Amino acid sequence: MGNKHENSTILERQAQKLKPPSMFLVALLNDDYTPMEFVVAIIQEYFNKDRETAMQIMLKVHRDGKGVCGTYSKDIALTKVELVLTHARKAGHPLQCVMEEV
């Protein structure tokens, strides 16, 4: 009869051990060739930012060498990196997009 209580205690302990999934930031890196306007368009299209926010991120990339566009779960971050790199290459730009665990 005591099994129900024991099982719930074990489940609670297991739940405490589970970490929330890792999150990853996605950032763009500065280069001397990709046009600023292209970077702004990428940020708006793939990271759902308004033009003003996209401009601020682009300027951070330009000034600091790197600008964070958002934080996502691993799968979404990987997809965003792939989409940005594919778009940039098709447009003939060397823009780099990276992800880092938070």
Rank of each mutant, 00 (worst) to 15 (best):
D32L: 10
R89N: 06
I42P: 00
M23R: 15
L95N: 00
K4S: 13
Q16P: 00
E37A: 08
T86W: 03
K19Y: 07
A77G: 05
D64F: 11
T9E: 14
M23L: 14
V40L: 04
F38K: 04
P35K: 03
D32A: 13
Y33N: 04
T71H: 02
D50C: 07
F24N: 00
H62L: 07
C97F: 05
K49T: 11
A91K: 12
C69Y: 08
Y33E: 06
D31C: 07
Y46V: 02
M1A: 12
L11E: 15
L25N: 08
F38A: 02
I57H: 04
C97K: 03
L59G: 03
L28H: 04
R89L: 07
V61T: 14
K4H: 11
A15H: 06
T34M: 01
H87G: 00
S73C: 07
V39I: 14
A15P: 00
K66Y: 09
P20L: 07
I57W: 07
F47C: 04
H5E: 12
I76N: 12
F38S: 04
L28F: 06
E82T: 13
V61W: 07
M55Q: 14
S8Q: 15
A77H: 03
M23D: 02
Q56N: 15
K19D: 11
Q14R: 13
K19R: 13
A41D: 15
G2I: 07
I76K: 11
D50S: 13
A91F: 11
K49R: 15
V61D: 08
D32M: 05
L78E: 15
V68G: 04
G65L: 06
A41M: 11
R13P: 00
L78T: 13
L85G: 01
V68D: 10
G92D: 03
Q16A: 13
Q16S: 09
T34F: 09
K49I: 08
R13S: 13
I10S: 08
M58P: 08
E12W: 02
M23S: 06
N3R: 05
F47N: 08
V61K: 09
A27R: 07
N7S: 10
N48Y: 11
A41H: 09
T9N: 11
T71D: 00
P21G: 06
Q14F: 12
T53E: 15
F47Y: 12
Y46I: 07
N48V: 06
E12V: 00
M55Y: 12
M1Y: 10
L83M: 15
R13H: 09
Q16C: 06
Q56R: 14
G70C: 06
T53C: 07
D50T: 13
M23I: 06
P35V: 03
